[in-house]
Design a protein around this nucleic acid. Structure first.
Length: 108
DNA sequence: AGCGCGGCTTTTC
DNA sequence: CGAAAAGCCGCGC
């Protein structure tokens, strides 16, 4: 099988990667997917089911083309944008400059 | 080159 | 069991 199916292990990996993202950087669903071996769909699902958003900043995960995608928290995407800007990330035309702000994960 | 459409995979209700 | 969800990729026009 191409992707991991161990629920607990997958969730763990995603959260670990999330907290490893330094301030002022973001990541993408795809990057997390590749780093963890989880399907992008599953990643989004895990992030949405995140029970501790303060610990695991799901807002730092954007789509592969730089757009924010969605946000399941209060305020929706607007809130997500604010949080990103608070971290010093510029959002131009509703998109994040991945070349500047994408965090590359070291091996997991 | 840009837009629209459908398929794919996993998790949750 | 069936459907939906915070996405991604490939194809056709």
């Amino acid at each position: 099988m191409k992707y991991s199916t161990n629920h607990w292990n997958n969730i763990n990996k995603v959260y670990i990667l999330l907290i490893k993202i330094p301030k002022g950087k973001v990541s993408t669903y795809k990057a997390v997917s590749q780093a963890t071996g989880i399907h992008p769909r599953a990643v989004s699902r895990i992030l949405h089911a995140n029970k501790e958003p303060e610990k695991y900043p799901c807002y730092k995960i954007v789509k592969s083309d730089g757009r924010l995608g969605g946000y399941g928290g209060p305020g929706g995407v607007k809130r997500k944008k604010e949080l990103l800007e608070r971290d010093g990330i510029e959002i131009m035309n509703g998109k994040v400059d991945l070349k500047k702000y994408l965090h590359i994960f070291s091996k997991i």
